[in-house]
């Protein structure tokens, strides 16, 4: 039997498909299309090399910011529950998940049973999210991937004290135009440290416990991940496919619900 977990992110749409209790396939698309369309597309892409079709999926759970109004899903679940379930399948000892996506930053605390105990998200502000890093990459005229590595080479760290994207931009510009200019790598290290303070601050608000996993698209950014580790003073567990954790969790829930269903 097939089950699917859909994660309707603001930038990307992800799906994990499970055959019984094993992951059959997954996919991720970048699309600004209307939700239902994106959902169908990503599922089709995931099933492409298999013998299955959409109709073969018995139960679909949808999560993510765009989870409302996806009619092909059987159930909606909040991201918190899905992060908890997904990470618990991958790393059962993890008790805290920090997820940084394109426009969201979520911290979830997980109990011994692998369920979410508490969660907190960024509100009305993009400063601790992927958008912040993208804005900064544009400002530094550098591809995001390159920027991610640059801070690892930094010898110093520029002071970026403002959390607000707009004011932080001003600070970065003043570093660039300083005489002599602050080295690029140092500015980027400062950008990463500033965002780590923001994300770390959110995590501290619900309290960090046990092993900590870092997920979401931004977890691929090695420079930022190191900055966050440094800020929190701990090692972070990063899954191989950090964007897929919520979709995986949704798929696990889909399986449970689907099996329970008569």
């Amino acid at each position: 039997m097939l089950f699917a977990g859909l994660d309707m992110g603001s930038l990307t749409t992800k799906v994990v498909i499970m055959e019984d209790n094993e992951v059959l396939s997954w996919n991720m698309i970048n699309s600004a299309e209307e939700g239902e369309l994106r959902a169908r597309k990503v599922i089709a892409a995931a099933l492409e090399d298999t013998d299955f079709r959409l109709e073969d999926i018995v139960y679909i759970v949808v999560t993510g910011a765009g989870r409302k109004s996806i009619s092909l899903a059987h159930k909606q679940r909040a991201p918190g529950s899905c992060f908890a379930r997904g990470i618990n399948r991958l790393f059962p000892t993890v008790r805290t998940v920090i997820d940084v996506g394109a426009e969201t930053c979520t911290v979830v605390r997980i109990n011994e049973r692998g369920a979410a105990d508490d969660s907190i998200g960024n509100e009305r502000c993009a400063s601790g999210t992927g958008v912040f890093l993208e804005t900064m990459a544009k400002l530094m005229q550098m591809p995001l991937e390159e920027m991610a590595r640059a801070s690892l080479l930094a010898e110093g760290k520029a002071e970026i004290s403002n959390m607000c994207t707009i004011f932080a931009e001003q600070e970065v510009i003043s570093h660039v135009h300083r005489d002599p200019p602050t080295p690029k790598n140092d500015i980027i290290a400062g950008i990463h440290a500033s965002m780590a303070t923001q994300v770390g601050g959110l995590a501290k608000r619900i309290g960090i416990a046990g092993d900590v996993a870092f997920t979401g698209g931004v977890a691929r950014n090695i420079g930022f991940a190191r900055a966050l580790e440094e800020h929190l003073g701990i090692r972070l567990t990063i899954p191989d496919e950090p964007e897929l954790v919520a979709a995986l969790g949704a798929a696990c829930i889909a399986r449970e619900e689907g099996v329970r269903k008569p």
Partner: peptide, 11 residues
């Protein structure tokens, strides 16, 4: 609130 109810349900 709905998210929270989900969390309570899971507990």
């Amino acid at each position: 609130l709905e998210e929270f109810f989900e969390l309570l349900e899971e507990r």
